[in-house]
């Protein structure tokens, strides 16, 4: 993993694509009708690093993630993935190298756990033995019991569903993982458990991870780099230390402060 100083700023305008960038967005903007979800922005995500997009709801963090995996098309600007510009013609193939997990898991309720995880591998005509092997490896990695493979999503707990969703995202061994509030729908105990497991998995895999959350605690737990967003713009980008100690905007301080208060209140409740 590259060690980059916390206050390092990439000169993006001069060199839009760096070899170490897994994702690089230049002048990307998005509107929904009259609502501007993202103002033109430049941002890059470095290979092998875990970045966290954080901000209040409506700040554009999920939109950014959907643009990166091509679920939305930008109104302006370009997105490079692994040094290739994303376009409608190549996005389908490029997605094989991206794993996507959303808050509720997005599991297909009509398919069993095994079918959910292997749907894409079967579509690509993997051999049965390859599929079995990969499934077993992923089950071990995510600590998901093999005897639940034949269950359907409705028969699983929330935490189990998210593990299945993660396995599905990892099935094709993608270069990046894009996680949109993956723990957001879980109750606190399970959440803490899975948080810990997820971090271990990320460390083990050394993949590029982009995680969206609104929880500062979670962001600092996961992120080498934290990108704070507000109203479709990036407010500040850096480690948690930089954000706490050198806020570039009063909003950064307010946002962190608000989150801390919540933590304190939670802590006072037995």
């Amino acid at each position: 993993m590259a060690i980059i100083p916390a206050d390092f700023e990439l000169p993006l305008q001069l060199h839009p694509v760096k070899l170490s960038d897994m994702f690089s967005l230049n002048g990307v903007s998005k509107r929904f009708g009259s609502f501007t979800a993202l103002h033109p922005l430049d941002v890059a995500f470095r290979e092998g690093e875990t970045s966290v997009l954080i901000g209040p709801s409506g700040c554009g963090k999920s939109t950014l993630l959907k643009l990166m995996i091509g679920l939305l098309k930008p109104d302006s600007g370009t997105i490079h993935f692994n040094n290739q510009p994303i376009s409608p013609t190549n996005i389908q193939i490029l997605r094989h190298q991206m794993g996507y997990v959303i808050q509720e898991g997005g599991l297909f309720p009509h398919l069993s756990v095994e079918q959910n995880i292997t749907v894409m591998a079967r579509h690509l005509d993997w051999s049965i033995s390859d599929i079995r092997q990969r499934l077993a490896d992923l089950s071990a990695l995510t600590q998901f019991p093999e005897n639940l493979w034949s269950r359907y999503p409705l028969q699983l707990s929330g935490g189990q569903r998210q593990r299945v969703s993660l396995m599905r995202a990892l099935m094709l061994d993608p270069k990046v993982l894009l996680l949109d509030e993956p723990l957001g729908a879980l109750d606190p105990m399970i959440r803490a458990d899975l948080q810990q497991d997820l971090k271990e998995i990320f460390n083990q895999l050394e993949k590029t991870v982009v995680l969206v959350t609104h929880d500062m605690g979670e962001a600092s737990f996961f992120g080498n780099e934290i990108i704070l967003m507000r109203q479709g713009k990036i407010v500040q980008k850096g480690t948690i230390k930089t954000l706490v100690n050198q806020p570039t905007d009063p909003f950064v301080k307010d946002f962190i402060q608000a989150q801390r208060q919540v933590t304190v209140i939670e802590g006072n409740n037995p």
Partner: peptide, 11 residues
């Protein structure tokens, strides 16, 4: 979310 997940898989 389910449809997006299907598309995001690359199907």
């Amino acid at each position: 979310g389910i449809q997006e997940s299907a598309t995001a898989l690359g199907l």
